[in-house]
Amino acid sequence: MSKSVDETVFDYFSLLLSEPEEVQAQQAAVQRQVNVAEEIDTAAIAKRHAKPVKQEVVSAIPQPEVVAEKQQAVERALALDNKPASSNLDKQALEKLLSSVVPEVKTASITTENTKVETSADPQVDAVPITKVAEKIAEKPATAIIEERQSETEEETAPATQASVAPPIEPTALDEQLDDEFQVLFFKVAGLTLAVPLISLGGIVQVEHVNHIIGRPKWFLGVQQYRDSQLNLVNTAAWVMPEKYDEKLAQSVNYQYLVVLENSNWGLACESLINAVKIDKSQVNWRGKAGKRPWLAGVVKEQMCGILHVQSLIDMLNAGLGCQDPIN
């Protein structure tokens, strides 16, 4: 695993967990509150209002030690990626998923995973601290505060010229739709692992002949024929992390499979399929509100990867919205 990929993954999850621009906006809001309090010229009242809020904001800003913990966690997680992801690897589910893909690909993919299992020393040893660190990070008040205040902050930061074409997206919380224990498929794009619940998976298709259509955004890879219709291919790296998607990354990404979203005609291009695993709801740090990223249902603590809210993602793609486009 190259350093740049580590950095990419780390930066991405730092962004997911801390939402820096919202923190800045909160800081500004708090500063305004503090100024108003000072103007009232009642020191006691100012103290009562300003101090706790300041503390909240301070805790909301990633502290150096927390950042270090996150980095360690991500580095360990990346190290784990070359070992079995977890002991509850569900081979049968993965085989079922890959049944629609050509046999030789299925063999290659599973062989790789098996090889990883054989070469691993002891996955449990490393897995425990990661879970602990991930939970520790998840339990930080910063995340909670950010989630609670997200809608309020968005009102302040949302530009006046929000895209009128964007439909209102009010997704049902994914955790309400899922059983306590559910299966997810992990897949990888440009060093980034993402998870999709199997109930939201329409299928897996091998990337073959992609037709490029002019005038489409960078994240639109093209179309590919699939069962007598066209499948719209999403350049997942460009969609999920547009800020990182430069010429160098574009050259290095080698898409192999398409993760078809439910019964839509959208497929997320990915480089590799990792495995299908049964996880418990409690293993996911669920996002309370859709916020700016309705496509992200939460973060799987152990794997430290985002879990997709497929219906919201489909809505965004149908509306032609990129990851960072404003949503009404």
Binding site: N211, I213, I214, G215, R216, P217, F220, V223, Q230, N232, L317, G320
Partner: peptide
């Protein structure tokens, strides 16, 4: 696919 925002997107009438 109706996701184009660029000028060149509008002169594709179908596939």
């Amino acid at each position: 696919p109706n996701v184009g925002t660029e000028e060149s997107a509008k002169f594709i009438q179908g596939v």
